[in-house]
Nucleic acid binder design. Structure first.
Lengths: 207, 207
DNA sequence: AGATAAAGCTGCACTAAATGCAGATTTACG
DNA sequence: CGTAAATCTGCATTTAGTGCAGCTTTATCT
């Protein structure tokens, strides 16, 4: 049944076309969102700009929001991999520090998304809500590190603190387009937060 | 212009009727949500059960979700007041400890809401997102306490940690209806988290 | 290459949330 | 009692999202 694919690198015309269409939809949508706002842009307009039928949009994305947040699954995936495949002796906290450092530099799509989201209260809430699986990932990793049981609250607070720091950094980075952004400065803040978390864990242990 | 109200205690027939209708809608909605699920319940059904027109529902609540979350504004208001009107010398952290303690006991509407939300992923995300103003409130209060500037990240991590603890406790409380719930036990966890936060702040200070 | 299968695209019809508007009804108030 | 204001409601409309069926395009097999 499963015929071995002769060209593993080339995904085939069908798949390539699909990816292209997908990207076209994303580009068209982000451009319209930027120009006239998210709420003010209809699926019909996006379809028109991307030169596909409105029905096709929903074949690619379950909801309008998913067009905007199309890049978040892969971002989460990157985080997941970095957490799973870490060298022996590297704690979850250390691994997270590394990923956060790498992720402070926003990709172009990510930056466009940030700008659109910043304009719409509803979208801000959605973005926040979409971090839940990512946060859960952190909780699990940290729990495993600490050997914590399901009732242990430490992983949750540590993850929450890190997410807060991460969001804050991202927002600040976004506020100043690329002007005074300093990677060292950002990492200094991350290390402050890690220090906070370690201090907190210490305090809980010696209670 | 402003005629002084002769009966300050009695809000007048119109207002009383409005409150009654509002409550009827909420009750009808929560019952239907519980019985058949949130997504499976339409505005038309709620209107029918509450004996008002569908259009009237939207005169009372901007969205279907707002019926479900109708009690959250007053909860946030309670928190806000407790944070603002606290005795001299009581820190924001102390005040928050108190409010969290008081709020662990869920009201009947709150409990019904929790049960409905627990069944629906989308609603979980919404609930989480709706905590944003509450979190901001915490951030502001803590920032004022610490004399922190806008770039100081400490208020955000402290607030995030507290929210996480709060949510965790609430969820656990919800999981066990009222059986093995112990107020002392819950407060012990809260104090653990407060200890964590204090330890974290300590660690940041002596960095 | 040509036939056949599978995947993808699109139009059509439909549901449900949400909004604007205007007329009818109810409450408030002099 | 009569008038003004608030409220309720029906109607029409917009938009997101879904199911389905037919058509087109790509893949596969001989």
């Amino acid at each position: 049944m499963e015929a071995p694919n002769p060209t593993e690198v080339r995904p085939g015309l069908r798949e390539r076309k699909k990816q292209k269409t997908r990207q076209t939809i994303i580009d068209a949508a982000l451009e319209l969102f930027t120009k006239q706002g998210y709420e003010e842009t209809t699926i019909a307009e996006i379809a028109d700009a991307a030169e596909v039928s409105p029905r096709t949009i929903f074949a690619y994305f379950p909801t309008k929001e998913d067009i905007l947040f199309s890049d978040t699954p892969e971002i989460h995936e990157r985080f997941r991999r970095a957490l799973e495949h870490r060298a022996e002796g590297v704690t979850a906290l250390d691994a997270l520090r590394g990923i956060i450092a790498e992720s402070l530099d926003l990709g172009p799509t990510e930056l466009r998304r940030k700008r659109i989201v910043a304009w719409d209260e509803t979208l801000k809430r959605s973005e926040r809500a979409r971090q839940a699986p990512f946060e859960q990932m952190m909780v699990d990793a940290i729990a495993k590190d600490l050997g914590a049981g399901p009732d242990d609250i430490r992983p949750q607070i540590v993850a929450a603190a890190l997410i807060a720091a991460f969001s804050k950094l991202r927002d600040r980075d976004f506020a100043e387009p690329s002007e005074s952004f300093s990677s060292e400065q950002a990492m200094a803040v991350v290390d402050e937060v890690i220090g906070f978390v370690r201090g907190g864990l210490e305090a809980m242990r010696r209670r």
